[in-house]
Every structure is written in C-alpha cells, then in structure tokens.
Write a protein that binds this DNA or RNA. Sequence first.
DNA 1: TTGACATATCGAAATATAACGATATAATAG
DNA 2: CTATTATATCGTTATATTTCGATATGTCAA
Lengths: 106, 106
Amino acid sequence: MKVDVNVFKALSNQTRLDILQWLKDPEREITSVSCETVRFMMDERGGICVQDLVKKAGLAQSTVSSYLSMMEKCGLLISERHGKWTYYRRNESEILGLSEKIKKEL
Amino acid sequence: MKVDVNVFKALSNQTRLDILQWLKDPEREITSVSCETVRFMMDERGGICVQDLVKKAGLAQSTVSSYLSMMEKCGLLISERHGKWTYYRRNESEILGLSEKIKKEL
DNA sequence: TTGACATATCGAAATATAACGATATAATAG
DNA sequence: CTATTATATCGTTATATTTCGATATGTCAA
C-alpha cells in the first residue's frame, strides 16, 4: 500500500500536531470535568471532547471541529459519540502503521 | 526532540512524495545519460540531477528546483554539486529518524 | 572573455488552506 | 414541546501554497 499524502496534509499544521500530542496523555493535558466523564464513558480509552480541545487550542469551535474531522477521515483519530459529546482519541495502530510505512515505503 | 511540522509540510504534496520515491531506485526510474554520470561521480550514492527530475515530474524547472531545495532544508534530501549539475539523493538516516520519531513522539 | 547550459531565485497569478462567525443538526433536561 | 448545550457544516475573508515565466548565478568549453 502506498503512503497517502492526506495523512501528511493533516500533520502539516502545528495545531493539529499539538492535538495529537494532547491526546497522548489527556489526564495531564486536559483538566476539566468532561475528562472525568469520558474516562467513565469510554472505558479508559482516553478520549477528549471537542470543547476541551477548543479551550486548549484557543481557536474557534468550528475550526477545531473541522480539524478533528479531517484527522479522523485520514485515520489518525477515532471518534465516538456519547449523547451530546463526541470524544476523540488517537488511532494508535494507524499511527504506528504510518511509522512503519515511512520506514518501508517512503 | 519534537517532531518538526516542516517535514510534514514537505511531504504534504504528491509530487514531492513522488520525488522521494523516484530517488529510491534512480536506475529504474530515471533513464538518462546524466544518471550514468552521477553514478560515476558520486561513488554509487545514486543522486539524480535536477533536469532528470524535471522531465519525470513534468513541472517547470523552477518549481522542481524549489521543491528540492525545500526538501533539502528540512533534511529529507542531500545535495551535492558537481560542475554544472546539482545531484540530489535521499537522506536515508533522516527518513529512518522520522519513522522513529513518529513511533516515539507523535 | 563569451556563449551555452544547469540550477537557483524572483515576481505574479491561480488555487488551497486557515480561521472566523453564523447557522444547522443532535441530544438532553425541564 | 421547548430551551439549552455540544458538535458539525456553511459561507466568507485572510493568508499560504502551487506553479509558472523571466531572470540571475554558476560552470565549462571554445
């Protein structure tokens, strides 16, 4: 399988790169009530809701939402909706796969 | 060390991604006299001159030249000038390093 | 030194991305 | 059902990238 340019497009923006980092350790990076909620709701998978990422990023809600959707579309993130909230978390296997692809095919 | 967004910017373009692929096996991809020259001159390191990449890419010389310079600046390529020609080749250790960085830090 | 060729750089026009506010959609609480 | 809250989508404007042609720089051969 060829390396997909869209993954690199998603990664070619500092905020989106930051989001990926923040999602690595949500408990450290995000300190809000909804983080508690998510830990309960998503069975320790560590997702973060859009609001929390909006606060952290300091950009408009619409901007962050479309960033997240774009990162999900190219496989970097996984989203799960629970009631009003959409929780986003890293797609670790996809990220590891990217590392492998770069080593083998780039 | 943090992951640098500029490497992803360099990779977020299909032509630049292609160039990286072509440079993987110059003898297969590029069939021109200057390829012979480079093999002799660069001691089997397999660089390709700008002209050959211009032909292959089908874009203006100025476009390809600036792509190459950009990819060199962010560490993906190495250039070496021999007379009139500038030969570009992959910076394999940097590319491997990127793969590692993604696995560990992204 | 001059001419020819390879590459690099510059300036401009077309296209894409970034980012916003407004609005639409979805879900819950009352 | 309605108001409220969370997220997604749309339309717009500012900025960045793409790509070109023209030109500058560097190198070699005559």
